[in-house]
Design a protein around this nucleic acid. Structure first.
Lengths: 383, 383
DNA sequence: ATAATTTGTGAAAACGTTTGCACAAATAAA
DNA sequence: TTTATTTGTGCAAACGTTTTCACAAATTAT
């Protein structure tokens, strides 16, 4: 009896181990987000039709490949029934296309970029694309890494608001025949499709608006940046100043300041320059820093100081007084970007495609912060 | 001479066509974002070492698989030299893992979600993951579609701020052994890891803060929503009201209103209820609508009406007067979410892993909009 | 000396598609 | 009737990995 029992125990525990081992294997296999999904070969087996034919039908090549309509409908109905969806990763591997586009912006936090991103996302989705977003923080190194990363992920194309110094990487992308659309900023040495706004005119008009409303001593608060869009805004301001025959006053802040640092610098600037009666801010967050500074100095807007911001934001409407802003045509811009990208994606050879530069006009949203008070006077110099 | 020339011409044009055809083929092959990258087999050929061995070394299994250290260093050096990077798509196909995690939030525009997203993105990146973001707009149908979409993309896990009615899809994910971390909201019927804040306590404390500052008639403006976090905020408010022995006044707004519609409704509400001397807003954008309404009614904050917002935002600091807000611990929350997700990803069997519910405390950021003025009086009832 | 084990490596299958090519059957042309 | 063409379909290779299994050589045990 005893050896007998021993054998049974052995057999038992062996069975146990086998089951245990198999279940481990099973779990490992299942440890992704898919239940065992049907493949095109499963369909082939069920329908007794080759995977090739099914693939043709799925890719709309039924007529081109002269698949009979009976077979076609049979396939389509079955697919409908079982809810088959092709494995995108396998598709990607085979075709080299990922149906993913990468979008690099300065910061996805920023309302301007967030709005653009949203429009692009929904449009791209309708066209069968997903969009990967990432923030460069305007740092060259980070942008390089991101381009590298997305390339490894086999994205089909790029939408980039380029930080400075990224020319080489973008040229490399174009040479590898990878579509790139630049927007918001211009890189003079790169020839690819560009979607821009007329920054010069935006700043020029805004400055003139201040003159027309009786303000005389207009400062410009901007970033210490050589980027084209910042340069153009500065040029627009200076053109207007020159035309009015008055004198410019410019504060350049370095790039990566925190909100509190920005407002601190602007506060100092305003205290040192009490002759000013208006300020044009080169970006929305500089304007927000300015508002903070103005509040701290207990200045009245626009009686003591008028302000205009570049890039509109919901907050400008809510502040009291509300803030006049140079609005970028977000919707139009987004549509243009995606349109251009799709055009590039459809084309075999990027170098053969002709590159466009699209320049859109800004719109001045007039609010109280820069409005015409008949009795404009600068109470600060008086005080 | 003439037939001779003809043959030459024929040969010429034939060659031309062959070259043309080949170049077309070449371009089609190149029409993704990769120049012809080296594969593991290319390495194998160059090094005269099998792809298997190289793969082992690459995946850190050198010792486990007892690869000799000479071979290992030889491989590593060569890889370094030529800058080889494995094809992630192929890896994904073979392993079923994508190193992508999906994050579904209400709206990526919203500053609360945007901040969380940012922290999660950088943390995930350090851990070798990319994050796909998408906005549900709190619509069940859209969320379902997105889950479906991401599943097709073989994401490894989900981070979701769940809209109502999404229980079934989430259960399905969990059953398929796909890690899901819920945050911001709670779904009572789902047992998975949850990262939440103490909404009840946040609203309770905020309301009490108003009482302590001498305000007596406190209203609550919220969404007409059954979602747990909204319910908890309401409960917190009512508990405080009850405890103070006063009476509650609640405005419930429907979900998808525009900013202007929100402020319009609040304006009506305030006009109908002139006895109120304070309002607690259940979300940041409701508070912004409220600020707009208050501006339009020319009310003084906090003299006529004190306000507190749920969810802090830079704008609350900039508005004048600045707005007191219940701040969510964004950093802490994000870290907890990603920590929990990584824990889940590391585990074979999701159903075996024990699920935690983490509840974090809010912090009341006291600003001017709800501050204690000794001479508090409600000028509106007087007027 | 033979057998068993360890050590280090490679061959080949698999993941799920797409696509070049082959090919049989049906039709048209000779 | 034979040959060429069209029509409809399927085989098998390829995309670039990972991983199971096999196996030869070196070492150790018998």
């Amino acid at each position: 009896m005893i050896p007998h029992a021993g054998i049974i125990v052995l057999a038992d525990s062996l069975l146990f181990y086998i089951i245990y081992f198999l279940s481990i294997l099973f779990l490992i296999k299942k440890n992704n987000c898919l239940k065992k999904k049907i493949s095109i070969h499963d369909l082939a087996r069920e329908l007794k039709i080759s995977a090739t034919t099914i693939s043709f039908v799925l890719n709309g090549k039924a007529t081109e490949k002269r698949i009979s309509s009976e077979v076609e409908t049979k396939i389509l109905e079955y697919i409908q029934k079982v809810g088959y969806k092709p494995n995108l990763v396998a598709q990607s591997l085979r075709t080299g296309k990922s149906k993913i586009i990468a979008m690099l912006v300065e910061s996805i936090d920023d309302s301007f970029f967030a709005s653009i991103a949203k429009v692009i996302e929904v449009t791209a989705y309708k066209l069968g694309y997903k969009v990967f977003f990432a923030s460069t923080e305007n740092e060259t190194e980070k942008a390089k890494q991101l381009i590298r990363l997305f390339r490894d992920r086999q994205v089909d194309g790029f939408i980039i608001a380029p930080p400075p110094g990224i020319e080489k990487e973008i040229t490399a992308l174009l040479e590898d025949n990878c579509p790139v659309i630049l927007f918001d900023r211009h890189l003079p040495t790169i020839t690819t499709t560009n979607v821009l706004i007329d920054n010069f005119d935006g700043a020029f008009s805004a400055t003139n608006h201040l003159f027309e409303n009786g303000f005389k001593k207009i400062a410009f608060v901007t970033l210490d940046s050589t980027q084209s869009q910042m340069q153009a805004r500065l040029d627009g301001y200076q053109k207007a100043i020159k035309q009015a025959g008055t004198v410019s006053k410019i504060l350049k802040l370095s790039y990566n300041l925190l909100h509190t640092e920005i407002s601190e610098k602007i506060k100092e600037f305003l205290q040192k320059n009490k002759q000013l009666d208006a300020v044009l801010f080169a970006t929305n967050y500089l304007a927000l820093g300015g508002v903070d500074a103005i509040n701290q100095l207990n200045l009245k807007v626009p009686e003591n100081l008028a302000i205009i911001a570049f890039d509109d934001d919901l907050i400008f409407q809510l502040l009291s007084p509300s803030v006049t802003a140079v609005a970028q045509p977000v919707q139009e811009m987004s549509e243009e970007v995606i349109k251009q990208l799709m055009k590039s994606l459809a084309v075999e050879d990027q170098s053969a495609q002709q590159k466009e530069t699209i320049i859109l006009k800004t719109k001045l949203i007039v609010r109280k912060s820069a409005i015409n008070f008949s009795s404009v006077k600068n109470l600060r110099t008086a005080g």
